[in-house]
């Protein structure tokens, strides 16, 4: 297959299928995330890039034999390794008997929320999640460092003119998404605050919220969206998210506990856990939303710049 567009779509389908597989494997939170990220955001980003770089691939293989040897060797090693793995679904394998039972049996008393994944994520292994937020923050900053372009102020008439012409072309989809976007944002907030009880949480909510805004900016133009949500504003929000998460930890330090020890936040440990989880999920949500929007904006701005330059070059030539 040398049409990259088709390949990217297939990758999206693969992600969606693995998300359904995760549901079958009882991993609802993961499935939710995979559907939002793998099938949603990453497909979208890849498509944006393909529009800039061309969708045909050179069919010549690079080092097929080397690759084949490496792959066969690694695969063989992995295959060899699987023979002693505990069987699929067996309840007596070590992972179900060593660390996990405490999460399953005691988390309801220690943390007090029904979704165990959230309690492990946000309390027992809160530092991993902090790391995850920092990873995505790093990616945002890195992409900004790579792609950000100096701003040129656009004049309002031009925007309005472009807007009108687009209005004709995308009438139906514009109206439908105008109806849908409030619901998408509302759903994101639901996911954000319902993460304690069902699947969901800051990360998924952030991605959905960002998807809503990205949809808007795709249909109504970047410049209009930028009027509401400017680049500096998103940057600040993304920093605030990380800081909010971290300061929950620092506050618990000041209260005399260890870092991320939510028990000391309030006098009642379980209520303290609730508060801590709520706050850090909010931090995650802020950072993820803003970084996703930031990434998309930077990609799209770069694309606009490229097109602008292309038109300019053609004018010069003719």
């Amino acid at each position: 297959m040398n049409d990259l567009f088709a390949v990217v779509m297939l990758l999206g389908i693969y992600s969606l299928l693995s998300a359904s597989f995760f549901v079958a494997m009882d991993a609802v939170d993961v499935a939710f995330t995979e559907a939002a990220v793998g099938a949603g955001i990453s497909t979208l980003l890849m498509l944006v890039v393909i529009t800039m770089t061309g969708r045909k691939e050179n069919t010549k293989r690079h080092k097929p034999f080397l690759a084949l040897i490496v792959v066969i060797f690694t695969g063989g090693l992995l295959l060899y390794g699987t023979f002693d793995i505990p069987h699929f679904g067996s309840a007596d394998s070590p992972i179900h008997n060593h660390v996990t039972p405490r999460y399953i049996n005691d988390s309801i008393n220690e943390i007090g929320i029904p979704n165990i994944v959230t309690s492990v994520l946000a309390s027992y292994r809160a530092f991993d999640t902090f790391g995850e937020v920092v990873v995505i923050f790093t990616a945002g900053i890195g992409i900004m460092a790579l792609l950000s372009v100096a701003h040129h102020s656009e004049d309002n008439h031009k925007i309005a003119a472009v807007n009108d012409s687009m209005h004709e072309r995308y009438l139906v989809i514009r109206i439908v998404s105008k109806i849908l976007i409030p619901f998408i944002l509302l759903f994101a907030l639901y996911v954000q605050f319902h993460g304690d009880f069902g699947p969901g949480g800051g990360f998924q909510a952030g991605v959905i919220f960002a998807a809503g805004i990205i949809l808007y900016s795709m249909l109504f133009g970047l410049s209009i969206t930028r009027k509401v949500i400017s680049q500096p504003f998103i940057q600040i929000i993304s920093a605030v998210g990380v800081l909010l998460y971290g300061s929950v930890g620092l506050v618990s330090l000041l209260q005399g506990g260890n870092f991320f020890d939510y028990n000391v936040l309030l006098t009642d440990p379980v209520a303290g856990q609730h508060l801590g989880i709520l706050l850090i999920e909010l931090g995650v949500g802020c950072t993820v939303t803003s970084v996703m929007i930031m990434i998309f904006f930077n990609f799209a701005e770069r694309r606009e710049l490229q097109q602008h330059n292309n038109i300019h070059n053609k004018d010069l030539e003719s």
Partner: peptide, 13 residues
């Protein structure tokens, strides 16, 4: 040894 979140070692980080 420092236990993050006040959780004992194999359960917390």
């Amino acid at each position: 040894s420092y236990e993050l979140g006040g959780w004992q070692a194999p359960w917390g980080i």
